[in-house]
Design a protein around this nucleic acid. Structure first.
Length: 237
DNA sequence: CTACCGATTGACT
DNA sequence: GTCAATCGGTAGA
C-alpha cells in the first residue's frame, strides 16, 4: 500500500497545476505506527496574486505565515472551530496553496470512525473540516514538512480507473467567486458540495471493498450505488 | 480595546 | 432549502 512520497519539486510549481495533479494522490497520516489514508478527490487552488479569497492576499501574518514558507509544507488554519488542511506551493516567499477538500478513505477507517463519531462513512472525509477531524489534524500540523514520509505526507496513489476532471468555482467564498479554481473527480461520491457543482453520479474508486464488515457496511452498500463504468481522464495544461 | 467576519458543519423547516 | 454555533484573525477606534 505504501507509495512514493511526493517530493518538494512536485509542490514547487504553479498552484493550479499542483491542485489538479493532487487528485488521485494519497494523503497519509501515521498514527502510532498505523496508517490513516485516503485518495484525494477534491482540491482548490488559492493564488499568490490577484486572488482576494486567498489568505495570502493581504500579505504574511502570524496565521498564514506557512503559506509564504517553502513549498511542500502544510498550512493548517481554523475556521468556525474547524481545521482545514492546505499544501503550500510555488517558491518560498510566495503565498500560494492548495486546500484539500475531500478524500476517499482507504486505510485506518476504524480510527476515522472513532474520531468522526459518525456511522455513515460518507460523512468521514467529505469536506475540508471533516477530513481534518477524520485524520486528527489540528494547528500542531501547521508548517509540517510533507516531504519526509513521516507523520503526515502525500504519496503517489494507486492505479485508478479512468476518470473525468471536474472544474468549478470554489466553495464557500465570498470574493473571487468567478475563478474556476476548484478541481475534483467528476461524480465521485466523496466530493463535497451540491450536485450542480459535483456532477451527477455517485461513484467511488474502491471504497466499497474497504468498508468495515457488519451493519455499517450493509447500510453503506444499500445507500450508495456501485461505481459506474469509467470515463475519459485528462489533465491538459 | 471592540466589532465584525469567515476557504464549515450539523441540525432543523 | 435555512440558520446558529463559536472563536481566531483582522481592522479600526
Amino acid at each position: 500500500m505504501n507509495g512514493t512520497v511526493l517530493d518538494r519539486a512536485f509542490y514547487d510549481r504553479p498552484v493550479v497545476r499542483v491542485a489538479q495533479e493532487l487528485l488521485g494522490k494519497r494523503l497519509v497520516r501515521d498514527w502510532q505506527g498505523q496508517r490513516v489514508s485516503g485518495l484525494i478527490v477534491e482540491a482548490e487552488a488559492y493564488l499568490a496574486a490577484g486572488d482576494p479569497a486567498s489568505h495570502s492576499y493581504r500579505g504574511p501574518t502570524r496565521r498564514n505565515r506557512s503559506m509564504f514558507g517553502p513549498p511542500g509544507h502544510a498550512y493548517v488554519y481554523t475556521i468556525h472551530t474547524r481545521y482545514c488542511l492546505n499544501v503550500v506551493c510555488e517558491s518560498q516567499g510566495v503565498g500560494a496553496a492548495v486546500l484539500i477538500r475531500a478524500v476517499e478513505p482507504e486505510e485506518g477507517m476504524e480510527l476515522m470512525a472513532r474520531w468522526r463519531s459518525r456511522s455513515n462513512p460518507l460523512d468521514w472525509t467529505r469536506g475540508p473540516g471533516r477530513l481534518c477531524e477524520a485524520f486528527q489534524l489540528n494547528l500542531q500540523w501547521d508548517g509540517w514538512d510533507l516531504t519526509t514520509g513521516h507523520g503526515l505526507w502525500i504519496e503517489q496513489g494507486p492505479a485508478l480507473p479512468e476518470w473525468t476532471l471536474g472544474v468549478s468555482p470554489r466553495i464557500g467564498i465570498r470574493l473571487a467567486q468567478e475563478l474556476p479554481l476548484r478541481f475534483f473527480v467528476q461524480g465521485h461520491c466523496f466530493v463535497s458540495g451540491t450536485r450542480r457543482l459535483n456532477g451527477h453520479t455517485q461513484a467511488g474508486f474502491a471504497w466499497l471493498q474497504q468498508l468495515p464488515v457488519g451493519a455499517s457496511r450493509r447500510k453503506a452498500v444499500m445507500n450508495f450505488p456501485k461505481p459506474q463504468s469509467p470515463r475519459q481522464s485528462k489533465l491538459d495544461n
